[in-house]
Write a protein that binds this DNA or RNA. Structure first.
Lengths: 204, 204
DNA sequence: GTCTATATTTGGATAGAC
DNA sequence: GTCTATCCAAATATAGAC
């Protein structure tokens, strides 16, 4: 008896083409901006006519959604590839460095995932779930440092996204802000260990 | 001899209509997103046909530019309206509170001024010059505190923009991040007074 | 699965009458 | 200054042949 066709060559080809389309889409948005992605352009890059794309994606938003999911998965991979030392502060620094690098190495991806400037687009629940894993990972790292209160966590995410945002907007391709990560984490850590739980000081 | 016509009624009317158009434009972008502004829509809101707008603005980008300028002027006004107490730290807190409030009270304006997501648009030099005054003002405040090194200033702007960005993205209309401003400024100030000049700690 | 052809909408911008 | 009419380009998406 012959082997069963456990490899579905048709499905493989389909998936490969999907991936090729997404690769081309990333190229387009990186060079011309996220909002400038058009199906005609995209189809051209992969040697197709625009309508053919609909064999692979239901709509333009579906393409954005798949790109969002790729971004979220890429982030998780980068986080998991970061070696742990066992020292919480060192590991936290590494985590933030990882996040800031992830954001600033691809502004278009950052815009897609964190800025939401495409009118009418929001990621599907399944896609968004992937992205949430990233945040939870960060919170676990903070918890290891004894930082569990919501205010401190919020302050920390503001610091991380602020560095990334400034880097992208005002020094794309450089390291003017990314190199501040370690200082920033130290600053946060010192403050938080001194004031746990972080209390509000009203200007009375 | 009769008085000269020092009031140019025609010019006044023209300026008033321009202002009316810009008001309507703000309405549109606030409710439908910055990228969703279209000349047809806009003209409709002020009871015109689209081509009539060209009597007031040379192009769509010119409208964005005028909006940018209005935003920059509005920020300067808000800064100048903030009373100074003479205590540098108090004044710095107030300045950041002012900035974060300015950003988060109008996400569309924030997107126009700080995120630059409109393909092909960038403010004219004259317009941009207004915006720069704002940053210089902040730097003067920091200088009064003895903070003059570039790294510290960059860290500070990252903190401010991070709070604003998180507020807009994750709690629009609320105060989850804006209320952290005072803590953030204190954290920064403590760190900076301890480590002046802010030095780099390499993970060797 | 891919194509051609096309529907449909919408956008910015211009010409020229009034 | 405002209008009508129009141009031109571009977009997403669908229908149906092959």
């Amino acid at each position: 008896m012959l082997e069963k066709p456990i490899r579905d060559r048709k499905a493989e080809r389909h998936a490969a083409t999907r991936a090729e389309i997404l690769d081309a889409a990333w190229e387009v948005v990186r060079s011309e901006g996220l909002a400038a992605l058009s199906l005609r352009d995209l189809a051209g890059k992969v040697g197709m006519q625009a309508p053919s794309l609909y064999s692979y994606f239901d709509s333009k938003h579906a393409i954005y959604d798949a790109m969002f999911a790729q971004g979220a998965r890429a982030y998780l991979e980068q986080v998991r590839a970061t070696p742990l030392t066992g020292d919480p502060l060192t590991d936290l620094r590494a985590a933030v460095r990882c996040f800031v690098r992830f954001c600033s190495e691809d502004p278009a991806r950052y815009q897609l995932m964190f800025q939401r400037t495409i009118p009418g687009f929001e990621p599907s629940p399944e896609t968004f779930a992937i992205a949430i894993e990233g945040l939870e990972l960060l919170e676990r790292r903070l918890a290891e440092l004894g930082v569990t209160d919501a205010r401190s966590i919020d302050l920390f995410t503001a610091l991380g996204t602020g560095i990334a945002a400034q880097q992208i907007s005002n020094d794309p391709g450089g390291d003017r802000w990314t190199r501040l990560v370690d200082d920033a984490v130290d600053m946060f850590f010192e403050h938080v260990t001194k004031h746990l739980p972080l209390t509000r000081r009203d200007p009375t």
